[in-house]
Structures are given as structure tokens and as C-alpha cells.
């Protein structure tokens, strides 16, 4: 890469300064991805690397590419990654326990193989012709240059890839789509009418509040209905599940004298 730069023209001093400041930071951030424990931190470092790359692009005269790099990769792709990491809650560091036996050697072989393949291919890569430099490419303007290539020479590749992406997006939406329950599709009006018909009429004005008619005004005591019976509906389901409910039967109307005695005993102690 350095060789190429020298062929076209000497690297300007400001560009060199900027490179020697940003490149180590980018490399450190890349190493950090391997080291940090939290997935969100790794995603942040990744976003930082993308921004550094964008700065390099802009400094090299590819302004459009640099800005799009930030908008698309940092702004959209990385943000969606972050969303998923936060919603799924991958806070805890990954477990180092080997769940599937024998995967490790395969993984190591595969990654070393891919690395060798990439290095050998990239090291032998050549442009196949003299580099002309970004100034020539940008002679009609950076954006115009990219646009004329995308919409003339590479228009088919461009359209095919966009069709592929749209298919993938629609496919993901179809696969992830769940039929809404019938209840969610009812309108507010239908629901409010249904509330006053049939079974739910009894609780149309809301469930009885706990403890209101009882001698205790606490949430763990069922309310007494006007006919003197305790209402199980008045106690929160959570409390019931936890078993934190006082037996309402003891405050029923016919049990009152007994309950009075018990309370007196309690106060007397």
C-alpha cells in the first residue's frame, strides 16, 4: 500500500501525521475487541474502528465513501447490533466451557486456513495497470465519479445486490412475523362494548380493591363483599402466588365475633 502511495505521489505531511495518530488507535481498538469481556464494549470498539476508517477514506479523497461508511455501518448496522446485544442482555462474559466436544481443533484449523488464504491472495494482488490516483478519478467530483460508475458499468451488479438485500430483508420480516392474537385486533370500541356484555359484566366497574371493606386496610387481606363474603378477586395474583395472603374467611361476617376476640387477645399481649 505504501508502495502504491509513493508511485502516485508523496504522502503529504498532515496526512502522515493523521495516519500515525489514528492507525495505532484503530489497531489498539481492534485488539481490544478480542480482550474486553462485555459484548457491548466490543461493539463500541468496532464502531470506533469504523469511524477511524471513515476518517482515512475522507483524508484520501474518498469523501462520499467515508461519510457513507459512518451513516451505514456505524449508524445503522452497528446500531442494530447494539440493539440486539442490549435487548438479549449479553452482559455477562461468555462462558469458556466447551459445550461441544472436538469443535476447538476444527475452529482453529478453519481460521488459520482462511487467514493463510487471505494473506496469500492479498499479498499477490495487483491492480493490473498503472494507478492513476484519486485526483483523476475525482476530476468530475467524487460523488459524480462513483455515481457514473455505479449506474453505467456496474449497474447490473448494483441492481442484483440490491435485489438480494431486499429479498433478505423481506424474508427476515416474513419469518419473524407472528400473527397477532384476535384480541389485539379488536378496536377500543368493541372491547368497551364487550365489557358490558356476558361474563365480564360483574367486574365492569373494575375488580374490588383489597382490604377496603375488611377490618384491615392492607393489600394482603381480601375485601368483604356487601354480602359479607371475602372476595378472592381483590387480592393481587402475585401475592397469592407468593402465599402472602391472610385468609379472608376469618373476617367473614359470621366469623366476626371470633375475629374480634382474636384481635383483642393480640392487642392485650
Amino acid at each position: 500500500m505504501n508502495q502504491l502511495a509513493f508511485e502516485v505521489g508523496q504522502t503529504a505531511t498532515p496526512e502522515a501525521v493523521q495516519f500515525y495518530i489514528l492507525a495505532p488507535i484503530a489497531v489498539l481498538a481492534a485488539l481490544g475487541i478480542l480482550v474486553v469481556k462485555k459484548a457491548v464494549h466490543a461493539a463500541l470498539l468496532m464502531a470506533w474502528i469504523m469511524i477511524t476508517l471513515a476518517i482515512f477514506y475522507i483524508a484520501n479523497g474518498a469523501a462520499f465513501l467515508g461519510v457513507v461508511q459512518v451513516v451505514v455501518y456505524t449508524g445503522a448496522v452497528m446500531m442494530l447490533f447494539l440493539f440486539i446485544l442490549m435487548l438479549v442482555g449479553v452482559d455477562s462474559s461468555d462462558s469458556l466451557k466447551e459445550n461441544l466436544k472436538g469443535v476447538r481443533p476444527i475452529a482453529i484449523t478453519a481460521s488459520v486456513g482462511i487467514a493463510l488464504l487471505l494473506v496469500s491472495l492479498i499479498s499477490r494482488a495487483s491492480l493490473g495497470r498503472e494507478a492513476v490516483g484519486i485526483e483523476v478519478m475525482n476530476s468530475f467530483g467524487n460523488v459524480e465519479g462513483i455515481a457514473s460508475l455505479l449506474f453505467t458499468k456496474y449497474v447490473w451488479a448494483f441492481e442484483f445486490i440490491s435485489a438480494l438485500l431486499i429479498t433478505a430483508a423481506v424474508g427476515a420480516m416474513v419469518l419473524a412475523h407472528s400473527q397477532k392474537s384476535a384480541d389485539a385486533q379488536k378496536s377500543q370500541r368493541v372491547k368497551s362494548v364487550a365489557r358490558f356484555r356476558g361474563e365480564s359484566l360483574g367486574t365492569a366497574a373494575g375488580l374490588p380493591g383489597s382490604g377496603v371493606f375488611a377490618r384491615h386496610n392492607a393489600v394482603d387481606v381480601p375485601a368483604l363483599l356487601p354480602d359479607g363474603t371475602p372476595s378472592e378477586l381483590s387480592v393481587s395474583k402475585t401475592l397469592k402466588a407468593r402465599g402472602d395472603v391472610i385468609d379472608g374467611g376469618k373476617y367473614a361476617l359470621d366469623q366476626l365475633p371470633k375475629a374480634n376476640e382474636a384481635d383483642k387477645d393480640f392487642e392485650g399481649r
Binding site: A63, V67, V70, V71, T74, G75, M79, G141, V143
Partner: peptide, 15 residues
């Protein structure tokens, strides 16, 4: 040349 896109990029980092 891409100043307006640059503003969009800045807001997307602001998120």
C-alpha cells in the same frame, strides 16, 4: 462535496 450527508452521519453517531 458531501456536506449534507456529513450532517446525517454526525446525527447517526449522536444516537
Amino acid at each position: 462535496p458531501v456536506a449534507v450527508l456529513y450532517i446525517l452521519a454526525a446525527t447517526s453517531i449522536g444516537v
